[in-house]
Write a protein that binds this DNA or RNA. Sequence first.
DNA 1: CGTTTGATTGACACGAGTCAACACCAGTGG
DNA 2: CCACTGGTGTTGACTCGTGTCAATCAAACG
Lengths: 274, 274
Amino acid sequence: MLNEGATAPVVARTHEAATRHPLVRKLAGMAPLSEVDKTALVALSAFVRAVPPRQDLLQEGEAAETAYLVLQGFAGCYKLLPDGTRQITDLLVPGDTTDLNALRLGGTMDHAVATLSACAVAAIPRVALLEVLDNHAGVARALSRCAMLEASVLRERLVSIGRRRAEQRMSHLFCEVLARLGAVGLADEDGCEWPLTQGELGDVLSLSNVHVNRVLQHLRAAGLIVLQDKRLTVPDVVRLRAFAGFTPNYLHLCVPERNTQDHDGANIPPHPRG
Amino acid sequence: MLNEGATAPVVARTHEAATRHPLVRKLAGMAPLSEVDKTALVALSAFVRAVPPRQDLLQEGEAAETAYLVLQGFAGCYKLLPDGTRQITDLLVPGDTTDLNALRLGGTMDHAVATLSACAVAAIPRVALLEVLDNHAGVARALSRCAMLEASVLRERLVSIGRRRAEQRMSHLFCEVLARLGAVGLADEDGCEWPLTQGELGDVLSLSNVHVNRVLQHLRAAGLIVLQDKRLTVPDVVRLRAFAGFTPNYLHLCVPERNTQDHDGANIPPHPRG
DNA sequence: CGTTTGATTGACACGAGTCAACACCAGTGG
DNA sequence: CCACTGGTGTTGACTCGTGTCAATCAAACG
């Protein structure tokens, strides 16, 4: 089940390549990393595999022996309910990993992880992670920040599902994914890849696929988004954010985004660190 | 605003007292702790304050300079929306702390924390936390596990709010709080303290206070719970868990609960660790 | 080319929100 | 002692957002 695709060591050796590596880009945005740190991160994700869509990477209940880093494509953490419905609790975009804390601490998975689109993922063995964490304090620090970020994203999605209407909920997700992809350099000026089906989008947002369809049409009719050919286009990010009630501060993005200039954090004044 | 109640150093010195300390009880359930670790934890929560109900401990957007440990009473993490509605993302019961990762890493609060009932809380200064984490690997390990647990609880609540009907959602929360209180020795044989108003319960479950009231009556009529005088009584925990679809595995409780004997994990076969 | 998967549309049902009114209780102050 | 108050719980009538069911259509696919 875990053996689709060829295992191929793909190691980027130049500084140039390391900087373009999704994991390096993400973690460098969380905490300062030395060149040695970055090299270690690239080495950590040496064993890359192509995985078809809709394949489980990790199952709920199993012991955490391996983590996965998503390099290309979208994956998702999910839980199944007795009645067969699925709740996707978080999307994994390039640069994101499955629960590294569980891997480090030797816990058991309390959720499953599956690819949504076709993905390129890197398998991270437990020993390799522990070795890197022991020898690279900067990486350990960045990963702690990632764990904090993950909880933050979960809280915000809880707010979305609990308190926002379907249209805003969906817009909010679009804004979030756009921002997260932008942070790893995978968002264009006005949009990004969007491989999810409407059914999968419903599993993220807790909406039926029928209702997802209707809401999408509302958003399209309002000119807020264009969604076709597995691609999301946002003509006016500011307008979509305003409609969704999206403020990116919960994403704790330290690096400046290319897509957004001066409308971030308008509600909350910036405060110096330390 | 932070000056209600007297700041009083309350240090338990005997092993007996340390074992009864909520934080020690909780962390000892997450990872093995030495006596020295436990003493350090008790010292960490030396500065205890009484806080009236409905007081903010931390505000959204402020820098994390101090964390709080709840010793008595219930508190909650929440976010406010532009329309004034509130979503409580997590309850803090005795033994729980506000986000220690944010404190350690010097981040900013992406959510607020407020007392719900009257509370006794211990303020944890940043330097004290860093000192303990540096010198007590066991504590650091236990706190990492707590962070993992917190994310796990958030995921499960996401599933609850997204996919469970109001009756099951509420029952599930009752089961969870009962289990969490049991883990720190604060649940009786058949129930626990329940200081939340119906409105606050609605803010946790994303239900209107009117609907909370109706759902409560259904659960009462079904004989699943008794809720009166700020106290929750569960005549038959097994029945409530079955009704709610509650399985405690996501709480990663290593210590055996007193309340539950042999009916845990009936849906999912147990899997040996390591 | 049949099959399948995903998108779309309409009719209808139902869970939960909203609004409004009232009961109950604990303070609180005259 | 009692009127007044505000917070909480309770109830009913009505509205509305979403789910469910079912049918159709388009595109991908073996």
